[in-house]
Design a protein around this nucleic acid. Structure first.
Length: 307
DNA sequence: AAAGCGTGGTT
DNA sequence: TAACCAAGCTT
């Protein structure tokens, strides 16, 4: 349950399913995951996004392995890496039968509508916690939480709530007002800027040069193509890792949470590549196993289409 | 406490 | 299609 909850953070069930199956097959229990090399777990997570979750997953598995078992209280669960307010409460309530106030985006939406909370998020969170606490039963709070989340995901949906089939319709203040979809009130979102960058495909024989990105920050800890940091100035100039003849390969467009990226891909293929540092030559015939995040998988596809 | 952090699907 | 959305956590 812990693994599925972590994978499902900000991620759809459809996206999680194959990853969950793969992880359970490869690391069937916490001890196996605790013993796994971190880079293998990172590579297995490639494509799922929010890679700090994978780092925290390993750290959490190691703490739990050292403890001998998962803590059973919300407070102690909350102290584990990668378990925030929601996940700690959900695991405590659902897995261990502790009374906990479980609030995810679904519960937040249902409660905001039930009480027609007009304060915008995130300021309304304290009030929403109090309201959810008031309606959470002393026993079987995990079942209550799952019921609320099911209503939120299947009936009280963000855009088109199905009040006709909602068991809470008669109690719902937002429905009485006539426009439940306007809750919860959210602040306007900022426009996402576009950045430009260049990635370098360096090929020698049947191998490509890959680096491992810094532990924190964008795509932290993931294997990647070398790049220019995506901060090319307006003139588009950037420094290539080696001197020589570079071929333009194309442009990859990719959207992240807070900016979009236009990544120019540049290719250098030769049997005589100068000495490179801080990376590894990776066999092209098993590039999938490198665990490239989607951005670089797109760039690699483009570069290989040149052949 | 506001911002950083992925990706794929839907509208 | 650009914007929005989906079972948040960390600093």
């Amino acid at each position: 349950m812990w693994l599925s909850e972590v994978m499902l953070q900000q991620t759809t069930v459809a996206a999680v399913k194959p990853y969950f199956a793969k992880f359970i097959a490869r690391w069937p229990n916490v001890a196996a995951l605790a013993a796994a090399p971190e880079d293998e777990v990172m590579a297995a997570w490639a494509g799922l996004g929010y890679y700090s979750r994978a780092r925290n997953l390993v750290a959490c598995a190691r703490e739990v392995a050292a403890l001998g078992r998962f803590p059973h209280t919300e407070r102690d669960l909350r102290a584990l890496p990668g378990l925030g307010a929601y996940t700690a409460a959900a695991v405590a309530a659902i897995a261990f039968g502790e009374r906990a106030v479980v609030i995810d985006a679904n519960v937040e939406r249902v409660v905001a509508r039930l009480y027609a909370v007009t304060d915008p998020l995130p300021a309304a969170r304290k009030a929403l916690y109090k309201l959810t606490d008031q309606i959470t039963p002393a026993s079987r709070s995990g079942d209550f939480a799952q019921a609320m989340m099911d209503i939120g995901s299947g009936i009280c949906t963000s855009r088109d709530p199905q009040c006709q089939i909602c068991p809470l319709a008669d109690l719902c203040a937002a429905r009485k007002q006539g426009d439940p979809a306007r809750f919860p009130v959210k602040p306007a979102k900022k426009a996402t800027p576009t950045r430009q960058g260049t990635a370098f495909w360096i090929e020698r024989g049947n191998k490509v040069w890959l680096v491992t990105r810094a532990g924190k920050g964008m795509l932290g800890g993931m294997r990647a193509l070398p790049d220019d940091g995506w901060r090319a100035s307006g003139d588009g100039t950037c420094k290539a890792p080696i001197k020589g003849t570079w071929q333009p390969v194309g442009l990859v467009r990719h959207s992240f949470t807070h900016f979009a990226l236009e990544l120019t891909v540049s290719r250098y293929a030769s049997e005589t590549v100068p000495q490179l540092q801080n990376g590894e030559w990776w066999p092209l015939d098993r590039l999938e196993a490198a665990g490239l995040p989607t951005l670089f998988a797109k760039a690699a596809r483009l570069a290989r289409a040149q052949d």
